[in-house]
Amino acid sequence: MQRICVIGGSRYFGKLLVERLRAAGHQVTVINRGSTPPPTGVEHLIVDRDDEAALTAALDARTFDVVVDQVCYTPVQAAIAARAFSGRTRRYVMTSTIEVYDPATAALPTVPPGTPVPEENVDPAGWQVAMDLPWHDDAYLETHYAEGKRQAEAVLAHAGDLAFASVRSAHVLGGGALEFTGRLAHYAEHIVRGEEITVHAKALPTVFIHYEELADLLSWATTADFTGPVNACSDGPLDVHGLAEAFAARARREAVYRTVSAGEEASPFSFDRHYAMSNARAKALGFSFSRTTDWLPDAVAEALAVSAAPTA
């Protein structure tokens, strides 16, 4: 049994992570702002993680074997967490994102299309941090999401008394109504209605992961001893056409496409640049991934069912 603190953990794969950690016999504490209570048997600390004094006071004398940070988006948040948990935990796992590799958001080493992007393409130990940027501005953060994650990783990588690991998640799918981003709903609704799916002329493949698999990997990361970033994606890249056709086949409709130029906005998961990740490091460390084609049909069926359900 371990003492594990989860920051966030109120919805989607974070909620499932908390449930699985508890079911595995761990002593779990959840920190969030109180909008969603955790499962029975899980300690709940209601506090705003951005308020350092309140966070430190809420933690009191608690210590943990591992902290899993599901909602760290900026270097400011990372610095607060590093100070608040200094001396309170030996291991800190941050949920990060495939977006750190997006070449449209930073000057990154070029990786030829078709070559899976390895973790070393973004090294948090060498990434520059700028605390004075307007990280508290929601609009700024929304447009600088990838950079916020990169800099948050960098801050925690330099927190000397923490064994830091980041889990860089692929695009997360599955769960029907639990998938709150609306990206699969976009396909379900457009395919059923015969509406256009907008795609780039040279749409490149990306990688995905099922929300249950990501919860499993994060749970595994709490007991593993690796440090640094690790990519989390199912085997088998998929492009926007493959995703749309999976919906079309299930709905027995024909996908209708409209092509847009490079740089223009398109349907979710249509990318005109390459940053599909490699999961080789996680495999070498002992984690086994499913194939995207194993779970995608069920995820598509769930999304179509939710789309067809009558609204209250």
Rank of each mutant, 00 (worst) to 15 (best):
A154M: 04
E119Q: 06
A159K: 13
P75K: 14
E99I: 08
G148V: 00
V93M: 09
A159T: 04
Y101H: 05
P112R: 10
H136K: 10
V67S: 11
N121Y: 04
V155K: 02
P124K: 06
T115F: 02
T74Y: 04
E52W: 07
T56D: 14
A157L: 11
P113C: 15
D137I: 01
P75C: 13
P113D: 01
V67G: 04
D65A: 14
A163K: 07
T74M: 03
L162E: 06
S96L: 10
D132M: 10
A78R: 04
A130Q: 15
V47C: 13
V76F: 07
T97A: 06
A78E: 15
I98P: 01
P116D: 05
T63I: 08
A81H: 10
V93C: 06
D123H: 02
T95S: 15
A125C: 05
T95M: 15
L55N: 11
M131A: 13
P116A: 09
Y92E: 13
P124N: 08
V129C: 06
A53T: 14
D123Y: 01
V111E: 10
L108A: 12
L133W: 01
D69Q: 07
Q151Y: 00
D69P: 02
E142H: 03
A81P: 00
E43F: 03
P118A: 04
A146H: 02
T56C: 12
E120H: 11
P75D: 02
F64W: 11
R150L: 11
A157M: 10
Q77Y: 11
A106F: 01
P116F: 02
L55I: 07
P118W: 00
A84M: 05
V68F: 10
Q151H: 06
I98F: 00
F164T: 09
I46C: 10
W135A: 15
V66K: 07
P134Y: 12
R91F: 11
V117M: 11
D161H: 09
F85W: 14
V66Y: 06
A79S: 09
G87F: 00
E147H: 03
I46G: 14
V129L: 14
Y101E: 04
P112Q: 11
T74H: 05
A107F: 01
A58E: 13
D137H: 10
E147F: 10
G126P: 01
T110F: 09
D51L: 03
T115R: 08
D137W: 13
R88W: 00
I98M: 06
H158K: 13
G114W: 00
G126F: 04
D65R: 09
D137N: 12
